[in-house]
Design a protein around this nucleic acid. Structure first.
Lengths: 114, 114
DNA sequence: ATAACGTACAACCAAATGGTTGCACAAAGA
DNA sequence: TCTTTGTGCAACCATTTGGTTGTACGTTAT
């Protein structure tokens, strides 16, 4: 699933199909690469259940599956929860042993774009 | 960044280093693969700013960088927000044109593990 | 019927990925 | 000093990935 999200083209396809349902060829026309390449990206997203396809005539209409996006987000939220509980545990230890000088709560800020 | 998260080994390293700071060799001892392989995984996580290394004698202590995890989660949360605003937009359209039969709010449930 | 369109898939290719072993080097210990 | 330990990096290898072109097939249009 994270693998499917790991390419900017696929994240862009996801974004577009969140905005509105589109056919594979409509999507393909938005990118420089061949139709087949886009079709493969769509297939990867479909395998990860991040999008859903629906047949309409000869077209295949693609739309995002918000459920899977939510699942990915929830997984990362769990990591954050782990971190928070770790901090809590350290706080307990520091409360018991106030002599320690270990500082793990200082999180340096980083300035970067997506 | 999603690329760095795309391997279960790396997600596991991330989980372990959230729990507590560990040296690279301590981490390596947890997995079947060679030290060099783990060291490369750590390097990938470091390049993605998902972990931070700190020198202590000959050891390099690794800890998770919660900021980057939060950033990944926030990005996915934005996708969800996009979806919600799409729904809102459709609701507006339906309010204006009640004759439409298009149904895009029906989200089928999928049952799968990670 | 024939042509054009939308899609899927196979075969192929270059580059990236995930693994290996081996080497170099600094730090800790004998 | 000599050895061991922890680390990083280079070289190498098999597999996967992201792209290509070509082909096949059902659907729509002429």
């Amino acid at each position: 699933m994270f693998h499917a999200l790991a390419t900017s083209t696929r994240r862009d396809i996801l974004r577009r199909t969140i905005e509105r349902e589109q056919s594979v060829s409509t999507l393909a026309s938005e990118y420089e690469m061949s139709f087949a390449a886009v079709q493969k990206h769509v297939a990867v997203l479909e395998a990860a259940n991040l999008i859903v396809k629906r047949a309409e005539g000869r077209e295949r209409l693609v739309r995002a599956n918000p459920e899977m996006i939510a699942r990915a987000r929830a997984l990362l939220a769990r990591y954050e929860e782990l971190w928070r509980s770790r901090i809590a545990r350290l706080d307990e230890l520091l409360a018991e042993k106030p002599a320690s000088t270990t500082d793990t709560t200082d999180v340096p800020r980083t300035e970067e774009g997506d």
